[in-house]
Design a protein around this nucleic acid. Structure first.
Length: 645
DNA sequence: ACGCCACCTATTTTT
DNA sequence: TAGGTGGCGT
């Protein structure tokens, strides 16, 4: 496939002699630009592929980009460093671990492991909420590039932070935030190392730059040496992650950090109708801007934006379903052409009910992923423990799964011994204290012996995992543990799938685990033809022919907790992101009444709706479908007309 | 180890 | 209102 670039896109690709900021509006073809630029750097600028880094936020974006680069560069694409910030950080850490006092084969703790760790530090009086709060705080500090010595906080919270970091190191483990923070700290303090990495890359490209937090931005800057090219792509109007530390003003910071920065704006949109873009432009114009931008398109004006007041969420859901059925009929649209977007997850419930009721296939995005499922996490922990015997979190997870009748008392005694001798739980299990009863001691020795044998056998990660499953009877254990037979079967199946998946991976144990720890290979199936339900946050980067934004009410969007200090602007951007997902048709609806904590609230339509000019909208009112009764009747009529869908 | 009840809280979430 | 958590009893 060959891309026709418009003049602005071409300018962005061609600009290689100075740092560049590409302000890429929604749907302006920025992925194509990044892809083409990588190709250009290799083909025209004669850069070696391994001298180029393209950084994204999600694995999905990275995968997409790699595929598109591969389509043009073929084999060479594999040499380009296309990865997420975290994967890049991991790759740096793998080479520099020793400098930080870590050993090869280190573990990566997920948030759950972090919670386990904090539970040890904060002893038993802490509730789950306390632990979550502390974890959140520590993570926020790290994302701001702060450590226990410079973070602003209560002395005892900082003490917890310090203890947390010390323990992580003791376990030879990093948490997710460390994957970016530690390379940043290392390259800051170690000039030799910094130069080496600056030498590594001749050009760095960053996607979604407005989403970088302080820590990511610091790492980015540290990678840019005197001879390193930079292409930053971003859209300040789509910055919706301020609440988790993203700094959209990093786009402005670029101008200060790189005085010779060029700026290219991509304003032609290839996705939406003119009407939808005008609505989006008008809305976002209400926000203050450093960089102004107006999207336009050649796709024609299209339908007006439909505005629909509804009685309550159930009525709203019925109306959305009615509209979907109608369009399935009149425009031969497929379920997969529709997306329903909302501010918060619980809003999905009413919609799911209505969709189920009318046999419309749907998919809710944002459930727990494969790797978060308990049985998969168990298996990953076995591998982690085999690669890094200091990984106490993995040890604790695995020691009694499947049941080995090693009681809490025994584990406590092992933990005491480990603490006393300052060794890991697994090491302590090899020299059990005399206080452990002979029976328990024998059981522990058996597991440890088995683990040691497994480690000594020269096996691939896949074979190792297969042995774990076989030797422990893991499938049966997992199946028996499930509440009902069906979930038992499905879990056993997912164990098999996982073993197969790991067997297909290449690399040694360490690489495989570190891959796995970074998360799911999301099994996004383009062919699956279902109505998509998701939050506005989850919708970023996606597009759909028909979009419904529901619950566009004061208190919901903008959310009631975001009415002050600049957060309102982020809520408006959220609305903007929602609008710009739509290709042909956009329907905005809200409820007159919504049950909230038991009480009926009626805050009414969102202020954002009034920010869309009148001439762009079509208001549905009482004469259309407005009461639940008529909506139901309308639906019934449609059903008769279309047959049972 | 499991089930029941009282209590609390109530956005957005990737890696 | 509802769903999740934590404490407590069997």
């Amino acid at each position: 496939m060959k891309f026709q670039l418009n003049p602005q896109q071409q300018a962005a690709v061609d600009c290689c002699d100075r740092p560049l900021l590409v302000l890429a509006g929604a749907g302006s073809g920025k992925t194509g630009v990044i892809t083409q630029k990588v190709v250009h750097l290799v083909r025209q600028q004669a850069l070696l592929p391994e001298k180029i880094a393209a950084i994204t936020f999600t694995r999905k974006a990275a995968r997409e980009m790699r595929q598109r680069v591969a389509r043009q560069l073929g084999e060479q694409a594999a040499q380009v460093w296309i990865s997420t910030f975290h994967a890049l950080g991991l790759r740096i850490l793998r080479e520099e671990a020793e400098r930080l006092g870590y050993r090869p084969g280190f573990s990566i703790f997920d948030p759950q492991d972090s919670l386990t760790l904090l539970r040890e530090i904060l002893h038993d009086s802490a509730t789950r909420e306390d632990l979550e709060r502390v974890r959140w705080q520590i993570s926020a500090w790290k994302n701001d590039g702060l450590g226990p010595d410079d973070a602003p906080g209560e002395p005892n919270t900082l003490e917890v932070f310090r203890g947390y970091q010390e323990r992580l190191k003791h376990y030879n483990a990093f948490d997710f935030d460390d994957l970016v923070a530690q390379p940043g700290a290392l390259l800051t303090s170690d000039a030799e190392c910094r130069e080496r990495w600056q030498w590594q890359f001749r050009h760095v490209l960053v996607d979604e730059c407005q989403d970088t937090n302080s820590c990511q931005y610091r790492l980015l800057r540290l990678l840019i040496g005197a001879r390193t090219g930079l292409t930053a792509v971003g859209d300040d109007d789509q910055s919706i992650y301020g609440w988790r530390g993203a700094r959209p003003d990093n786009l402005e910071q670029l101008q200060r950090d790189f005085p010779d920065l060029s700026i290219v704006k991509l304003e032609q949109n290839y996705r939406s109708s003119g009407t939808i873009l005008k609505a989006a432009n008008a809305l976002i114009a209400q926000n203050p801007h450093t960089f102004s931008k107006a999207l336009w398109s050649e796709l024609g004006e299209g339908d007006p934006v439909a505005l629909r007041p509804c009685q309550d969420p159930a009525d709203e859901a019925d109306q959305v379903v009615a509209a979907i059925l109608e369009r399935k009929f009149t425009r031969k649209a497929q379920p997969g052409d529709f997306a329903i977007l909302y501010r918060s997850n619980h809003q999905a419930r009413a919609l799911e009910q209505a969709l189920r009721g009318h046999r419309l296939p749907y998919r809710v995005s944002g459930g727990p992923s494969w790797f978060e499922r308990g049985e998969i996490k168990d298996l990953i922990c076995y591998l982690r423990l085999l690669a890094n015997e200091r990984d106490d979190a993995a040890f604790l997870r695995v020691i009694n799964r499947p049941r080995r009748e090693i009681g809490a008392g025994t584990v406590d005694k092992i933990a005491e011994a480990a603490a006393r001798r300052d060794v890991a739980l697994l090491a302590a299990s090899r020299h059990l204290p005399a206080t452990v009863a002979a029976r328990s001691a024998a059981r522990v020795r058996d597991v440890v012996q088995w683990l040691d044998d497994l480690k000594a056998a020269a096996l691939t990660p896949g074979q190792m995992l297969q042995r774990v499953v076989d030797d422990t009877g893991f499938r049966d254990f997992i199946a028996r543990e499930a509440a009902d037979e069906a979930t038992g079967r499905s879990r056993a199946r997912s164990v098999d799938e996982f073993v197969k998946w790991v067997s297909g991976m290449d690399g040694g144990l360490t690489e495989v685990i570190q891959q796995l720890s970074l998360g799911d290979e999301d099994s996004e199936d383009a062919s699956d033809d279902r109505v998509r339900l998701m939050t506005l946050h989850a919708a970023k980067g996606l597009e759909f022919p028909y979009v419904f934004m529901v619950g566009v009410e004061e208190g919901v969007l903008p959310h009631r907790n975001s009415l002050d200090d600049g957060q309102l602007e982020e809520e408006r951007r959220l609305m903007y992101v929602g609008i710009t997902r739509a290709q042909q048709s956009l329907t905005i609806s809200w409820c007159q009444a919504r049950r909230r904590f038991g009480e009926v609230s009626d805050e009414g339509v969102s202020r954002f709706v009034a920010e869309i000019p009148d001439e762009l909208v079509h208001r549905h009112g009482a004469q259309d479908v407005s009461s639940p009764q008529t909506a139901k009747a309308h639906l019934a009529g449609l059903r008769d007309m279309l047959g049972d869908l």
